[in-house]
Design a protein around this nucleic acid. Structure first.
Length: 721
RNA sequence: GCGCCCUUAGCUCAGUGGUAGAGCGUUCCAUUCACAUUGGAAAGGUCGGAGGUUCGAUACCUCCAGGGCGCACCA
């Protein structure tokens, strides 16, 4: 059995064992916490709850996960030591779209493809794959020292989660908040699914910009291949240049494949200053055009199919891929004398899939949508009323801006890996309606045959409900005890994807905010501050750092100086420095134990004035650190403790004690020994949330019967003392 | 285009209305001492630029420059 007298400190010899002791103690479970100490009295009635953002079950943790686990564990251990009834619930995310993509790559390696596979078989394969990988993720969470309650762990595809998610859909449909609409959506041709707006990104790109003759007008476009069906020409109603053309006026124009009849439309969406101030519209493949068409009741026609090939409307170009068709169409326009000029350096933003970075093709598709305006109102009010706080505060503004400008949310996905949308669609009249029990076969409207919707929910539709679902809403007593939760700690990149959905669903379904505080951490980048990515080859594996330098060193290295919301540059040197700190704690302890084994710790001796000053000083630091922790300034608390332990306790106090214990006056010796032992004990408690393994290990070596993780926090918090 | 954030020591970053700190790195010295995963010391910054508020600004305000991030109207 490794002990304190081995040197130096070797984290990997202790960590696994310590975690096992914690887990077997049952204290991760708030129902099994020991009775409160005198200092903790009164606090055990208060709960402290964090729902862990469930890591993807499809593989190992990455650096971002280790940061959030550390932060949440710090909060949890701190509040547990303060005596609160502390619950931190772990979870595992099926991560719909993301996992399906990961599995598609697996299939590709095997020379297979999901297209053409039986959906049920594909689902089962992905499920097997995910459950297999879930173990690795969980082992990693344990390796990080997470003091979460595994007995309450939930998977996002657990039957009760699916059931309640589907019930929410039904309830929203009944309340008129979910509707089936034929609207423009983001279509990823590679993944063959629609995506919500937060699942797309903009990419800046240079493309040729074509100026084309359209009857008496000149229009400009970067996408001539979509223009076949353009029979509406739009201009601003106040544009003097075109005042001779009246709204609704018809014109005969020569177009790509011959003569067509064009209709003039006046709409204020047109920017008079851009290009020629005139454009033709393609409502099926452009969001702005779609809106214009909706406003004026115009016809819409699909030009490009779901695989990115031109449809018969393109005449001789039908069946061609976009890229091939574009140059040929331009060639033909030139021959016909319709091409006026080409601007070769046109810079614009294009929408791409956030996963594969392929171009998004806007398409009109019949999908389920959530009506956001009334729901967003609930969230806006809750935040404006101060019911939900943001750390750092400026995210409140960002959150509100997004909520105030939100648009209806497409929740249908054409992928199998997810929660099925419990709905039926009429094959005859096209109407869609929920059917939770899967019992309805006839359309209630026209009597036509109703078939099951094969789509699944957007992952965020279910993960947005996670806080109350994981607590067993509506019937479980955990929901009544622990909801609303205290903190939602997550990455600032999820400020739109996840946080607003949780607030909305919480307020809508559970009728209460899901959490009081949103703490947003920054992203973990490489040592130079560059985003980690496999293609750049700069990915740092946190678990390797943990093995090499110890989890405690990794944890405190991630925390010191890392202010909320700010991205972190993670370098190996940084972590190595904190391994030295762990060793410092180890050696200081050895000195203290070697020099205090002969004192009776149960009897406080006379303390000299000088030693009392040291204890008072530590008391002040404890209070200061506690205030920092209460205000989420972990980066400061950690740094202060580091500094105190090393440069005050080890460098000064211990050094001075060496003289004192050589004194002839026995009472001075006794006071000195008692004091350094006391300072060590208090320091270990203060350091425990940050560096749980080594502090717990030492605590046990010091002969304490109780686990440090449930000891009392040594400062003010309880002012009754 | 709009919004948010950042600019402080070689690097990564804290911080405060009274002319600056940490970690890592660098240089010099020490070493049978709990610890060489160490101790002691040192070098190193006109706190992005300009203006304003103030007795006083790195900190508060305005503008400018550079960098990062986010965003559903430029065909």
């Amino acid at each position: 059995m490794p002990s304190i007298f081995d040197k130096p400190y070797e984290p990997k010899e202790h960590e696994e064992n310590i975690y096992r002791i914690w887990e077997e103690s049952g204290f991760f479970n708030p129902d099994k916490l020991p009775p409160p100490t005198a200092r903790q009295a009164g606090n055990r009635e208060k709960t402290f709850t964090i729902i862990m953002p469930p890591p993807n079950a499809n593989g190992h943790l990455h650096a971002g996960h280790t940061l959030f686990i550390t932060l949440e564990d710090i909060m949890t251990r701190f509040e547990r030591m303060r005596g609160k009834k502390t619950l931190w619930i772990p979870g595992a995310d099926h991560a719909g779209f993301e996992t399906q993509i990961v599995y598609e790559r697996e299939l590709e390696k095997q020379g297979r493809s999901r297209f053409g596979m039986d959906p049920q078989k594909l689902y089962e394969e992905i499920l097997t794959f995910t459950l297999e990988n879930k173990k690795y993720m969980e082992a990693d969470v344990r390796a990080m020292g997470a003091s979460c309650d595994w007995s309450r762990e939930k998977f996002t595809l657990d039957p009760e989660i699916i059931r309640e998610t589907q019930r929410t859909f039904k309830q929203m449909f009944d309340d008129g908040l979910v509707y089936r609409g034929n609207r423009i959506i983001n279509w990823c041709q590679k993944h063959q699914t629609s995506l919500s707006d937060v699942e797309t990104e903009f990419r800046e790109q240079n493309d040729p910009f074509y100026y084309i003759k359209y009857g008496p007008f000149t229009i400009a476009t970067s996408r001539p291949e979509t223009k076949f069906g353009d029979k509406y020409v739009v201009m601003h109603p106040k544009d003097e240049r075109y005042k001779e053309y009246k709204d609704g006026q018809r014109l005969e124009v020569e177009w790509i494949n011959g003569k067509i009849t064009a209709t003039v439309i006046k709409d204020e969406a047109i920017d008079m200053a851009f290009g020629t101030g005139v454009m033709t519209i393609t409502p099926w493949h452009d969001a702005v055009d779609f809106e214009i068409a909706e406003r004026h009741g115009l016809e819409k026609e699909q030009i490009i199919d779901w695989r990115g090939k031109l449809l018969p409307v393109a005449g001789e170009f039908a069946g061609m891929k976009i890229k091939e068709a574009r140059s040929k169409i331009v060639e033909k326009l030139k021959e016909k004398g319709l091409l006026i000029k080409i601007d070769e350096n046109y810079q614009h933003n294009v929408k791409v899939c956030y996963k594969c970075e392929n171009l998004i093709e806007p398409q009109i598709k019949e999908q389920w949508f959530v009506k956001m305006k009334p729901l967003a109102k609930l969230a806006i009010d809750a935040v404006n009323d101060g019911k939900i706080k943001f750390i750092p505060e400026n995210y409140k503004k960002i959150f509100l801006y997004w909520m105030e400008n939100t648009i209806d949310w497409n929740i249908s996905r054409q992928i199998v890996w997810g929660i099925p949308i419990p709905a039926k669609l009429c094959e005859k009249c096209g109407v869609g309606f929920p059917d939770l029990e899967n019992k309805i076969n006839k359309c209630p409207k026209c009597g036509g045959e109703a078939v099951a919707d094969t789509d699944t929910f957007d992952t965020w539709f279910s993960s947005g409900q996670w806080p109350y679902l994981v607590l067993g809403y509506p019937d479980n007593k955990d929901f009544k005890t622990f909801y609303p939760t205290d903190i939602m700690e997550t990455g600032h990149d999820l400020i739109f994807r996840w946080v607003p959905r949780m607030v909305i669903f919480g307020l809508y379904r559970a009728k209460i905010i899901p959490f009081h505080t949103v703490y947003l951490h920054g992203l973990v980048n490489d040592a130079k501050g560059k985003k980690m990515s496999k293609s750049k080859g700069n990915v740092i594996n946190p678990l390797e750092l943990s093995k090499k330098y110890g989890t405690d060193a990794l944890r405190i290295g991630l925390i010191v100086g890392n202010t909320p919301g700010t991205d972190l540059a993670l370098s190996e040197d940084r972590i190595r420095g904190y391994k030295n700190f762990a060793n410092k704690i180890w050696n200081a302890t050895r000195f203290v134990l070697m020099n205090s084994s002969d004192i009776d710790r149960s009897k406080k001796p006379e303390i000299t004035v000088e030693d009392q000053k040291l204890l008072d000083e530590l008391k002040m630091i404890s209070e200061d650190v506690t205030t920092d922790m209460e205000n989420f300034r972990f980066y400061l608390a950690a740094e202060k403790l580091y500094h105190y332990f090393w440069h005050a306790f080890a460098d000064k106090i211990i050094e001075a004690s060496k003289e004192k214990i050589k004194n002839e006056d026995k009472s001075i010796i006794l006071s000195a020994k008692w004091t350094i032992f006391e300072i060590l004990s208090i320091s270990l408690k203060l350091l425990h949330p940050f560096m749980p393994f080594i502090t717990e290990k030492i605590w046990q070596e010091m002969g304490n019967k109780k686990l440090l993780m449930v000891e009392s926090w040594p400062a003010t918090a309880d002012k009754q003392k």
